[in-house]
Write a protein that binds this DNA or RNA. Structure first.
Lengths: 337, 337
DNA sequence: CTGAAAGCGCTTACAG
DNA sequence: CTGAAAGCGCTTACAG
């Protein structure tokens, strides 16, 4: 039995055709109950394991979703994965996850791999550096729908699910204003990312709505590494009048910024308030954390992205044309402590 | 081209046989260079994407490793995944990851799924509750090698890679002793886990070697949830003479224990020292953390597990018998601050 | 160097 | 209700 028992073995033993066995195992209505029972009994006894590779091949469907994310050490993405998996499980779909590690070359390689493996659909968080969308372009042609997630591509012809970036940024900034801060800095994300621009815009709008002048010196772009955040913070701290409140693109940046203060301006740690995107599980262990987070509801976003993808997968079958969808998830402010 | 171009389409266009095209694409030595060039050129022009499902089916090999881990929010496992992926990539293998969420029922379902999908090998971290190893038993029979990881099963007939649990526990406990602690508690892992027993043993040995009597009241088992850690800590704090140093099964437990102190005995936070397994990336953000960690080198352990698995996969092909392997990874002590 | 043929394990119209 | 047959896209001995 090393070779694995097949449908044919069962058919032979029971003096049936393979078609009958196949149908019996798949609960086809045309098969009589006694036959079904006999087949299932033997399949059980012989420990029959269906060969999914054969099934996928035959059906040209893999019942598998591909997920491409930058990094699994970022809890935001893990929560999103869990959300997507939940929806996939409901539809009896598998999920395969791959990490791009923020490298567009990896990303391209992974997309190719997913294509070769004929996933039925793809959920993608592009890398922070992804500019060229061509790897994703021909996916539609070969019938693999893609939903982008969290980081919308610049090109609006793709479907995506994203947070209400501008609204969230506005809320976070306003919270800092309401806490009495007048000089509010912004550690913005990589300038090439669309999300960065949106969050910057929300920040500006908040200032404007509260009659605070915009000071370009109070905006520093970082690339999400610790070094670049340290550098940006050192620029702020060199100013004659450094910010007392800082809105960050992402709270991992807030954490790095706080580390910077701990090391270089320990007296300022409790003097500067941070607020940014992302309410992370690890916060509960921290003594020094952002005063507020924009809850991105990544689990729900993951669910939403998967739901949208399944909608496309199903439409794919029926070959109808459809409009591009951009879903925005509402963000709420969470105050810490 | 919606249907996807196949080898047959290419053969037709070039007036060749499918065998020739297949061999050309696979760089078979018997094919002439001009033929190879023509085939590859057209494959490129037509954007040919090999159907891996068909290949896997034909070759009865999926070039895929299955990884089953309890939870991706635990950075220990993520690092291990990354290590395993690195080795897999070298061998041109894919990795599919699934989370059991510490539920043996999920685990069984996932193993079944992996079997149906005919992964070439499996790396598994069993759940903390897994007692019944039967889901893993027939994997060998159907030719799917398994390597267990981090949490060795009780049954020694399985292959596994694990940390030097006893040695690590000894080191951590001795560090606390050398810091001057005489009353050293142990927050041990679930009693049903083999690792818990090994670490408990290391703790006992350290006490003995340093002539400190063993007090059963200083050992509390937790199930890795916050609640159970809080409960265990409250037991300790009720003692007439609570421990001043605590060796924990896992540093996530230390973090929960420190949270407990912050909430209920803020004066004790700096009075009680913790040391435990696991040096985690998130530590860098913490003000209150364990004084020392046992570095489990999870990335390297992941690599090692994958290496071992590939060894088995290759032997599988040659059908030779082999001895069970238990690999122990040396642990080093990392002092914080 | 190239090609004809068999076959991997399954599903699904179609016929009976 | 059951079965014979075709075929999903590929690879690989084998023959020439």
């Amino acid at each position: 039995m090393k070779k694995g028992v097949t449908i044919k073995d069962i058919a032979l033993k029971l003096n049936m055709s393979v078609s009958t066995v196949s149908k019996a195992l798949n609960n086809d209505l045309s098969i009589s109950t006694p036959t079904k029972d006999r087949v299932k009994q033997l399949a059980d006894d012989w420990n029959y394991i269906p060969n999914e590779a054969a099934r996928h091949f035959k059906l040209s469907k893999t019942f598998t979703l591909g997920l491409i994310i930058p990094d699994m050490l970022d809890q935001f993405f893990v929560l999103a994965i869990n959300g997507a998996e939940k929806i996939a499980a409901k539809e009896k779909y598998n999920v395969i996850i791959s990490q791009s590690h923020e490298d567009p070359a990896n990303e391209e390689r992974i997309v190719d791999l997913m294509k070769r493996n004929r996933v039925d659909g793809l959920i993608v968080v592009i890398t922070k550096k992804t500019q060229d969308m061509s790897p994703f372009l021909n996916l539609k042609n070969i019938g693999i729908p893609v939903v982008f997630f969290a980081r919308p591509p610049k090109d609006d012809s793709f479907d995506y699910v994203t947070a209400d970036n501008e609204g969230g940024a506005l809320k976070a900034t306003e919270y800092l204003i309401n806490q009495g801060h007048q000089r509010i800095g912004h550690l913005m994300g990589p300038e090439c990312m669309a999300v960065s621009q949106l969050r910057l815009q929300g920040y500006k709008t908040a200032l404007q709505m509260n009659n605070i002048g915009f000071d370009p010196g109070l905006v520093q772009a970082v690339d999400l590494t610790e070094e670049s955040t340290f550098l940006a913070m050192s620029q702020f701290m060199k100013m004659p009048s450094p910010p007392t409140g800082i809105f960050t693109f992402k709270n991992y940046i807030s954490l790095d910024a706080i580390e910077y203060l701990k090391k270089n301006f320990p007296g300022m740690v409790n003097k500067i308030d941070f607020a940014g995107f992302g309410n992370l599980p690890l916060f509960r262990y921290l003594d020094h954390k952002p005063v507020a987070s924009i809850e991105e509801s990544s689990y729900e976003m993951g669910e939403e992205a998967a739901r949208l993808l399944f909608q496309f997968i199903k439409e794919e079958d029926s070959m109808t044309m459809r409009a591009v969808q951009h879903i925005q998830i509402h963000c709420k402010l969470v105050v810490h402590k």
